[in-house]
Design a protein around this nucleic acid. Sequence first.
DNA 1: ATTGCTTATTCTCTAACTGAGCAAATGCTA
DNA 2: TAGCATTTGCTCAGTTAGAGAATAAGCAAT
Lengths: 314, 314
Amino acid sequence: MSATPPPAIGSQGAVGLRAELVAVVITVDEGHPRVLASGRPPQLPAGPLRQDHQSLQDGVRAFAARQTGHTLGYVEQLYTFADLGRGPGADRVVSISYLGLTRARDDVSAWMPIYDLLPWEDHRHICADAEPDRLLQEIETALGRWTRSDAALEEERRDRCAHVFGHGDHPWRPELALHRYELLWEAGLVGESPTGGHPSGLTGPSMLHDHRRILATGLSRLRSALQYRPVVFELMPQTFTLGQLQEAVEALAGQILHKQNFRRLVEQQHELVEPTGGTSRATGGRPAKLYRFRREVFTERQQVGTKLPLPRAR
Amino acid sequence: MSATPPPAIGSQGAVGLRAELVAVVITVDEGHPRVLASGRPPQLPAGPLRQDHQSLQDGVRAFAARQTGHTLGYVEQLYTFADLGRGPGADRVVSISYLGLTRARDDVSAWMPIYDLLPWEDHRHICADAEPDRLLQEIETALGRWTRSDAALEEERRDRCAHVFGHGDHPWRPELALHRYELLWEAGLVGESPTGGHPSGLTGPSMLHDHRRILATGLSRLRSALQYRPVVFELMPQTFTLGQLQEAVEALAGQILHKQNFRRLVEQQHELVEPTGGTSRATGGRPAKLYRFRREVFTERQQVGTKLPLPRAR
DNA sequence: ATTGCTTATTCTCTAACTGAGCAAATGCTA
DNA sequence: TAGCATTTGCTCAGTTAGAGAATAAGCAAT
């Protein structure tokens, strides 16, 4: 109730700037998550903010509609970056990034498999008994070298690697995708690292500017959202089997789930899905019941979501 | 993969714009959460983005340092709004909002109690046996009127009110603060609603532009973060009792917690805090052990957090 | 000194949840 | 009919979470 208005954050030096939207549009296709990206180097769709967009979300939706021929089922703001202009006197660029999910993909050439771009994020073939993945093995070795390269920071780096990459008895946490990317970036293990990118193509291709980082942000956010909200259904057809639903979640989470427990969790949220009565015999085994997402409960349940029955230990 | 770069989101009509930072700086003082805000109508600190800020976070941190004399312990980007310029031809304004937490407050006049601005968000006096809060009673009545005012939307509105405000057997969820504000806004129950603000001062004073909405966004985000990450400690003194810690969490969550279970949760994360050996007898009863936050584990644990032992039913 | 009040601290109990896996059901194919 | 693949139903044990009893340790008033 003070009478004095607070001083402004900056009282001088406002600069000319440009604003652009960057979209991370994700879909999933037969167990393969894909992102709208193309070009060499690959880049996410982006463009200047237009005057005629009523809101930022509208801008992203309008664009996605033009690109995919279908509307985005889910749109969420990710993060806003403000790079200093490249070169002195250049305008500053504010990049507002969005995550969007969509079902339909007409032009397959514009969609890149996400795990081509972030190959260490797919853990679906990691089982408790199998030998560890070769890529992850090499990354662990390289991270170990980086960890030991600075005695003062060694302890902290070791903890961080263990926590983020699930070494030792730490669990692998799918939603830490962004933290993993940032760690690899700091360790000089991705091509776009400032400290000399890794020589081999170990960690997959770089993208334009910081687009790979933005993609990792989107993947992290999506994997988090999977645990709280029914966002998978935006990627599913009208009717689906629980097996298909699980396949989609596994693709996005990059991790295998326990089938019976997944079923239990989905059915337990009893109003989330309902059987249509039909069955599908596409999978070769016993025909599976078809379900429908009850979109009616979506608005009130935006925060409820689908929990992931992750396996306890590795 | 594909050789054609994706088309831009907008290919024409880029407009002049201004970018500003808006800060939601929160502290807690003897059970009362406060936000840096002042003026009539109250406004959050805001100002143009300056050229000399290396990054957006730097801008917010630099400002907060000037304002409070202390650095922000925690900074998180909230949301970016893009209002169409007021009036035709006006520049568009991009508002990038941040949440910041800080311990020290020198100039008490610049800090407003958050629950003066969002009075329905404080549930600390709600007990299972006590009679319901008068304010919430009135809000429920007014929401009921709004719900019944449109037969076509009645069902959906009723569900939404129940879910967001915890009517019926739905639990009250502290982190839905933003959803509650948006619902009140739509229902015309806050002063800044377009559809004729509520006549009485039922829901507290409006703020400048959409600042109350931004504040609600910050509160929601903070309450969510409380559950995943050890952010409370940014608001605590160097050493503290578990009672003080709980008081701070309760103030921010706006809800009473079960004392014994809160203690269990904190101690259970065994490396998060450690006893200093000292005791405090400030509270009148048995002297309490003093604890220290183990900042060493902070970096690796950014995602672990303090769970809230909320009471099961209302 | 004793009583009473206040808050801190330790434990116990119970219901619910979670990870894991066995086994039956139901289709197809050889 | 046997074999295979997948779905579906169920059990079991370990863990977590909400609730509250009981005890400990200080202060103030009697």
